Amino acid sequence: MAIVYVPQTIFPEFASDLEISEVAARDAFTASALSYALAFFAFGPLSDVYSARALASSGAVATALAGGLTALTTSFPMFVVAAAATGVCAASVPSAMLALAARAGNGRTGRSFGVILAATVAGITLGRGVGALLAGSVGWRWTYVVLASAILVAGLSSLALPRTTSRSQSVVRAYAAALTMIARPDVLRFLGVGGSLFFGYLGLTTVLTLRLSDPPLSLGPSAIGAINLSGLIALAGAPLAGALVPRLGAKKVSLLGLCLCLAGTVAVRLATDAVGATLGLLILYLGVFAAQPGLMVRLTQLVGVDQKGSASASYFLVCLLAGSFLGWLWQDHGWALVVVASAAAVVLTLVLASTTSDTRALRARGATR
């Protein structure tokens, strides 16, 4: 995740080096994030067929190679292609991990999702925060080298994951089953929950990063990176929420988290300086990633064991794509309307999540929290 999100805050550095405008440089993040999101549909069904360990380790090595090539680019078109390739390869790792978590069983699914989501947020935060700090110190090229090296080490370490066997279904059948699954009304409803949440949350945090770099605050990459480090709150929030799922129920945990999301959105809107923005982000991040384990447990309870990887990956795909739309609103209508749209999306998420019943899934599937 870090290497996918790092272009968002280091664009002034590579814009100057590659001799393009900062406005054009921001498009590199769109290419990186969009390719990452779309690749989830490719890797989701594969995670229902192949070993999670094999998919994660090979995907990490490919991501490290693509990231290393990004550091060597000498023109902006080459940079965009390399960043997009890095995003595609990077999606293989969380797809494998989500499939592994969805099949954890014995009351461990919520906690497993929480740990993975915390790692995801850590990656986003490292990309935006530590990546910006590195770029300010050693330059954007060495930033990519450092991140690629860390991913390579992680890929080799993933060989220590539990050994899982490949499933008997074919790849073609896995993709066909995934398409059938996402067309189901009950699954579509949960995909809508994730989409509306990330439209509000990820869109707001992305635009906030852009707003902090513009007047009147005009903060530099290092300052913006430091503010974005507040996302590390999810390192505690997501696993804790996941552990509460067996005790309180997935629905109650998810709704409590969504209430915090709404409070965080309001706090960001009321912020008038960097301190206020940081506090608002703390609350927002905590709420989002407290809600996510419960929401993902509820979704995976709706499907059979051979589709849990596809269900989890489809959820992430919808979330990440939906989170990219508020940037367009920012360009055309400004900050105030972005916050209104974000708050409305979180309210819609609360309504959808609270009016969706889990009874059918628990009775029909016999799934465990």
Rank of each mutant, 00 (worst) to 15 (best):
residue 69 L to F: 11
residue 86 T to G: 12
residue 227 I to F: 04
residue 118 A to W: 00
residue 231 G to H: 04
residue 327 G to R: 09
residue 164 T to H: 09
residue 113 F to D: 05
residue 132 A to N: 03
residue 301 Q to R: 10
residue 100 L to G: 14
residue 184 R to K: 11
residue 281 L to G: 10
residue 168 S to P: 02
residue 160 A to V: 06
residue 242 G to M: 04
residue 122 A to V: 14
residue 148 A to Q: 08
residue 339 V to Q: 10
residue 222 S to A: 14
residue 146 V to S: 12
residue 366 G to L: 04
residue 205 T to S: 10
residue 120 T to M: 11
residue 176 A to N: 02
residue 281 L to D: 09
residue 237 G to Y: 00
residue 151 I to L: 14
residue 243 A to R: 03
residue 291 A to V: 11
residue 273 D to C: 03
residue 290 A to S: 15
residue 289 F to V: 00
residue 231 G to K: 02
residue 291 A to K: 13
residue 96 A to F: 02
residue 241 A to R: 00
residue 20 I to A: 02
residue 71 A to L: 01
residue 277 A to V: 14
residue 328 W to I: 15
residue 200 G to W: 02
residue 269 R to P: 00
residue 262 L to T: 02
residue 86 T to N: 12
residue 294 G to F: 14
residue 56 A to E: 13
residue 68 G to A: 03
residue 119 A to E: 07
residue 155 G to Y: 13
residue 313 A to P: 06
residue 25 A to L: 10
residue 270 L to T: 08
residue 352 L to Y: 11
residue 237 G to S: 05
residue 118 A to V: 07
residue 300 T to Q: 07
residue 108 R to E: 13
residue 354 S to H: 13
residue 153 V to A: 08
residue 29 F to H: 07
residue 155 G to A: 13
residue 185 P to T: 07
residue 336 A to Q: 13
residue 319 C to Q: 12
residue 334 G to E: 01
residue 138 V to E: 08
residue 78 M to C: 00
residue 358 D to M: 06
residue 87 G to I: 06
residue 249 G to H: 06
residue 218 S to D: 13
residue 152 L to C: 00
residue 58 S to C: 10
residue 59 G to S: 09
residue 337 L to Y: 04
residue 170 S to I: 09
residue 192 G to H: 13
residue 81 V to R: 06
residue 270 L to N: 11
residue 182 I to T: 08
residue 239 P to Y: 06
residue 30 T to F: 06
residue 115 V to I: 05
residue 228 N to K: 05
residue 326 L to N: 08
residue 151 I to S: 13
residue 28 A to N: 01
residue 303 V to F: 08
residue 111 R to N: 12
residue 174 A to C: 13
residue 97 M to A: 15
residue 160 A to N: 08
residue 129 G to H: 04
residue 112 S to L: 03
residue 54 A to L: 11
residue 191 L to R: 00
residue 189 R to D: 09
residue 79 F to C: 07
residue 250 A to E: 11
residue 121 V to F: 06
residue 179 L to W: 00
residue 103 R to W: 05
residue 271 A to D: 07
residue 195 G to M: 04
residue 268 V to P: 01
residue 277 A to C: 13
residue 205 T to P: 04
residue 364 A to W: 09
residue 78 M to G: 15
residue 361 A to Y: 14
residue 279 L to S: 10
residue 142 W to Q: 13
residue 165 T to N: 13
residue 53 R to I: 08
residue 316 F to L: 15
residue 267 A to H: 04
residue 49 V to R: 03
residue 104 A to I: 10
residue 148 A to C: 05
residue 279 L to F: 14
residue 64 A to R: 07
residue 364 A to L: 15
residue 156 L to Y: 07
residue 86 T to S: 12
residue 287 G to T: 09
residue 149 S to R: 02
residue 191 L to H: 07
residue 121 V to H: 03
residue 235 L to F: 07
residue 311 A to H: 12
residue 293 P to S: 12
residue 95 S to L: 00
residue 284 L to F: 14
residue 291 A to P: 08
residue 340 V to P: 03
residue 36 Y to F: 08
residue 47 S to Y: 03
residue 22 E to Y: 06
residue 148 A to Y: 09
residue 140 W to Q: 04
residue 117 L to E: 14
residue 242 G to H: 11
residue 349 T to K: 07
residue 72 L to S: 09
residue 330 W to H: 03
residue 213 S to A: 12
residue 334 G to R: 01
